[in-house]
C-alpha cells in the first residue's frame, strides 16, 4: 500500500509522537508513506471561519501536488487536516465550477482523481490477520476508551468511513492489539479544538466531560487520532484540574502509539516519553 502522506503543521511540534509512531507502525505493516513534496497548511482550524474559497484553496494546493505524484490515495493522521483535505476534495470533484475557480486561485491544476483517507481508515482497513501477525506483545488487560472526536467522523457526507455516532474503527484495532475496547458515552463529543487556545475556560468544560466519562467507564487510558484532541486531553488535563478542582491522571495515547507498543516497538521510538500526563502507569501494565 502506497500513500501520498500529508504530515500537517503539528508534525514536528505538539503532535510529534503521532508522527514518529505513525512511521514506525506503517513500516511494520508494509505501508509506504510518501510525503507530499513541499506541502503547505490546510487552513485548519481557521480558514473555514474567514472564507469559503480560502478554506477550499489552502488544502487544494496540496491535493494538486499529490495528484502529480501518481499515487491514488492521500492519507493524514490529523483529524482536522483530514477533514480539510476530504472537504476540498469533495467540493472540487463534485462541482466543476468550484474546481476551475479554485485551480485559478492556487495556480495549480487539480483534476479531482484522488481519494482522501484518514490514517484511522488507512490502517483500519488493512487485513486484520496481517495486523494481528505483527502483534508480539498483546496489550492484555488494558482497558481503553477510544475517542474519535468530531472531525474524523463528521459530517458523514465528508468522512463516511465509520459510524458518526458510534464509530468502531479504533476500537477494532485496539482489540486486534489485544486490548479491551470499552463501550463508553463520549466517543464523539467535541474536545473544543482551538477553543483551547482562544477560550480556555470554555474548552476546559468540554474536556472535563470527556475525561469524566472515560474515568467512569473504567478506562486505563484514552486513545485518540488527532493532535488537537491529544493536546486538549493530555496537556489541558492540567488546566481542567486547576480550573475545576478535579484530579484527573488519565494517560492519553495516539492509536499508533498503542499499536506500536503491541508490535514490540520501543516506547522511546514511539515518543511515549514526551506526554504531559504520565504514561508510566499504562506502560507498566503492558510490560
Amino acid at each position: 500500500m502506497r500513500y501520498a502522506y500529508y504530515p500537517g503543521c503539528s508534525y514536528h511540534g505538539t503532535g510529534k509522537e503521532y508522527e514518529s509512531s505513525t512511521h514506525a507502525v506503517a513500516k511494520k505493516l508494509g505501508m509506504e508513506l510518501v510525503e507530499i513534496p513541499d506541502w503547505s497548511c490546510c487552513g485548519a482550524t481557521a480558514a473555514h471561519g474567514k472564507s469559503h474559497l480560502l478554506n477550499i484553496s489552502l488544502p487544494a494546493r496540496n491535493l494538486a501536488i499529490a495528484e502529480d505524484m501518481g499515487i491514488m490515495d492521500v492519507t493524514t493522521g490529523c483529524a482536522a487536516c483530514y477533514q480539510q483535505l476530504a472537504h476540498a476534495n469533495k467540493r472540487m470533484t463534485e462541482n466543476k465550477e468550484t474546481r476551475e475557480k479554485v485551480n485559478k486561485i492556487t495556480g495549480k491544476e487539480y483534476k479531482g482523481t484522488l481519494k482522501v483517507k484518514s490514517l484511522v481508515e488507512a490502517i483500519g482497513t488493512i487485513d486484520p490477520e496481517l495486523l494481528k501477525a505483527q502483534v508480539v506483545k498483546p496489550l492484555s488487560d488494558l482497558k481503553v476508551a477510544a475517542y474519535y472526536g468530531c472531525l474524523l467522523v463528521r459530517p458523514p457526507e465528508i468522512t463516511g468511513f465509520d459510524d458518526p455516532e458510534n464509530p468502531m474503527f479504533m476500537d477494532n484495532m485496539m482489540k486486534l492489539a489485544g486490548a479491551q475496547a470499552l463501550d463508553w458515552a463520549h466517543k464523539t463529543e467535541c474536545c473544543g479544538a482551538s477553543l483551547g487556545v482562544s477560550n480556555l475556560d470554555v474548552a476546559v468544560r468540554m474536556i472535563n466531560r470527556i475525561l469524566k466519562a472515560a474515568v467512569e467507564s473504567g478506562a486505563d487510558c484514552v486513545v485518540v487520532a488527532c493532535p488537537f484532541c491529544h493536546l486538549n486531553l493530555d496537556w489541558h488535563q492540567k488546566s481542567v484540574n486547576k480550573q475545576l478542582g478535579t484530579t484527573y491522571e488519565m494517560p492519553v495515547f495516539y492509536f499508533t502509539e498503542l499499536l506500536g507498543l503491541a508490535m514490540g516497538i520501543s516506547p522511546d521510538e514511539l515518543g511515549l516519553k514526551t506526554h504531559f500526563t504520565d504514561t508510566q502507569k499504562v506502560l507498566s501494565l503492558v510490560g
Partner: peptide
Amino acid sequence: CASCSTCST
C-alpha cells in the same frame, strides 16, 4: 460554535 457538526449530523 466549535464546528463539530454534531448538529449537522
